[in-house]
Write a protein that binds this DNA or RNA. Structure first.
Length: 552
DNA sequence: CTGACTTGCGCC
DNA sequence: AAAGGGCGCAAGTCAG
């Protein structure tokens, strides 16, 4: 694969064509405004674009109507490499190592806000690429690691394309929904009518005529003064109480949440030209999951999803994997019995059918406990049976937990490493074995140790799940592109939303069946990439809908 | 006053 | 009934 390293300099943009051995074979210089034309012409023959950071290059290209097939995102790849236990970190050193480590993605909506003195402009992408290639080549796990780097970079392209396209959003539908639930939009600083109407019942019920329920402290004191035994004001806590003011209070909290998180201000801020635009940040979470920035894209409540409506003549294809993480656990541990249960569309039902557990509820709570480290109650009781039935799967997460408790680094299937634990308990755990009593009680240290073990336990599964999802996205992106024969990314079937194990594709209605096929094939391909021939299935729930809310 | 932290709750 | 892992965000609260 031919590689071209793009370098941004004050006087010009430089495209370095690399030879197979990674040395620079030639360079083309051109003014920054000619970038899109250059990339459009060059991308017609197979090329991997190498650049410092996708968020600094790709939005402008997309704006100019240019899609690229593949890239290497040095910022993201470096973050993977420097944490991976498969890599000799010393190979990543260099004068500007600190600069690379400190590089942040750009998420400013307005290109004019782009910093004039971007620290990225002082870095040398050619040298960094060579360091990364050397580190990869020296790794005993270069196959897996290489796949992870390619997938991570591909995710960066998907993320930029999703931000560019935006999620179709009907502000009028959203406004109607808000008005029905809250009343007309109030003047700034005023409560909506529905909240005002609930106030008297709350205040009278608690005997606090001046109470402002928006203040947690005030509310807590009022509840306690009314004789209610509560230590906090969480909805779940309040639901346990039998008191006449509680229903109105719960209703009030629910509506306030809607108003604050996804009310008219949210609409004003995040929805423009019929699109909800937020930034997706690949690798934004230590486990490799994506983070998001702007508008709370990772938690678009079901309540407002009716406002996500496909364009006229278009549809959403909504697809999610049922029980992604237990399936991933079956695959990465090579647990044949759990893979057998995963043959069912509902893995938990598969566990029941095989006689491992009696009910679906037991299967679910048991598996969640195994992956999250639940030891108490129902899930704790399930563990011995699960361990007997699925020794490799349960053994893998148990070992990850023990390693974490010892202060060790764990890694995902493809080699993403967990952070090195900090804090007194961990330093001593590594250096001295059992620590002497120093700085915090023994109970404190044990609590921290166990908490870190739950984190590493979850890390291996959540992180490998994120790798499966990256492979799924990357393959799907390419399949969707090939469904069209003309037009830009957002003029063809394209991704508009991704959350851990769920995608939303915006597609011309007549291509919906082809998109379903693409989504399923990409899912199968992701399983092959990660687990080879090991027989673990990743069945999808797929719907074709006009509104996101109608997906099941 | 600003910035850091906490609380509560939405998503997987 | 959650618990147990990972997030982002708005508003309130508190320290300086």
């Amino acid at each position: 694969m031919n590689r071209v390293v793009l370098v941004r300099r004050a006087e010009a943009t430089v495209a370095h064509e690399l030879a197979d051995d990674g040395t620079v074979a030639g360079a083309t210089r051109f003014p920054a405004e000619e970038l899109a034309g250059f990339v459009r012409d060059r991308d017609t023959s197979p090329v991997r674009w190498v650049w410092d950071d996708t968020t600094r290059w790709y939005p402008g290209l997309l704006e100019a109507g240019v899609r690229v097939e593949r890239c290497t995102d040095l910022r993201l790849c470096r973050a993977v490499l420097r944490r991976s236990p498969f890599v000799d970190r010393s190979l990543l050193g260099g004068d500007d190592a600190g600069g690379w480590d400190a590089l942040e993605p750009v998420t400013a909506a307005d290109p004019a806000l782009f910093p004039l003195a971007d620290p990225a402009d002082r870095l040398d992408p050619v040298a960094e690429h060579q360091r990364q290639q050397a580190a990869l080549a020296a790794s005993a796990e270069r196959g897996r690691l290489g796949l992870l780097l390619a997938a991570e970079s591909s995710g960066a392209l998907v993320a930029a394309e999703m931000t560019h396209a935006g999620l179709p959003w009907r502000a009028d539908v959203h406004d109607r929904l808000l008005t029905e639930l809250l009343g007309p939009r109030p003047a700034p600083g005023h409560r909506p009518a529905a909240l005002e109407r609930l106030l008297p019942a709350i205040r009278e019920g608690l005997g606090a005529p001046q109470l402002n329920p928006d203040s947690p402290g005030e509310l807590l004191r009022a509840l306690q003064t009314a004789g209610l035994p509560v230590a906090d004001t969480r909805s779940w806590t309040l639901e346990q109480l039998d008191h006449p003011s509680i229903p109105a209070l719960l209703e009030y909290k629910k509506l306030v949440r809607l108003l604050q998180a996804n009310g008219w201000n949210w609409l004003d801020t995040w929805v423009r030209d019929g699109r909800f635009r937020s930034y997706f940040l690949p690798g934004g979470v230590v486990t490799g999951r994506w983070a998001s920035n702007g508008g709370g894209a990772l938690s678009v409540p079901l309540q407002v999803r009716p406002a996500a409506v496909a364009d006229e003549g278009w549809r959403f294809v909504v697809a999610d994997v049922a029980q992604l993480e237990p399936r991933v656990l079956a695959g990465m541990s090579g647990d044949a019995a759990m893979a057998e249960a995963a043959r069912a569309t509902d893995l938990y039902q598969g566990m029941v059918a095989s006689g491992a557990v009696a009910t679906r509820a037991e299967a679910k709570v048991g598996m969640l406990g195994a992956m999250y480290g639940g030891t108490r109650g129902e899930s704790g009781r399930m563990m011995p049976r699960l361990t007997r039935r699925y020794p490799r799967a349960i053994g893998l997460v148990e070992e990850a937990a023990r390693a974490g408790e010892r202060g060790e680094v764990v890694h995902t299937l493809l080699g993403r490493g967990s952070p090195v634990p900090t804090g007194a308990w961990a330093e001593r755990a590594v250096a001295l074995g059992e620590p002497p009593d120093e700085g915090g009680s023994r109970e404190d240290r044990d609590r921290h140790r166990r908490a870190w073990g739950r984190f590493t336990r979850n890390f291996v599964v959540q992180g490998t799940g994120a790798e499966w999802a990256l492979c799924w996205l990357a393959d799907l992106r390419n399949r969707l592109w090939r469904l069209g024969d003309a037009g830009t990314v957002s003029e063809r079937a394209h991704l508009v939303f991704f959350l851990h194990d769920e995608v939303v594709v915006h597609t011309p209605a007549e291509l919906a069946d082809d998109v379903i096929d693409a989504v399923r094939r990409a899912s199968a391909e992701a399983g092959r990439l990660l687990f080879g021939g090991f027989p673990v299935d990743f069945p999808l729930d797929v719907s074709v809908v006009e509104s996101w809310a109608d997906a099941d």
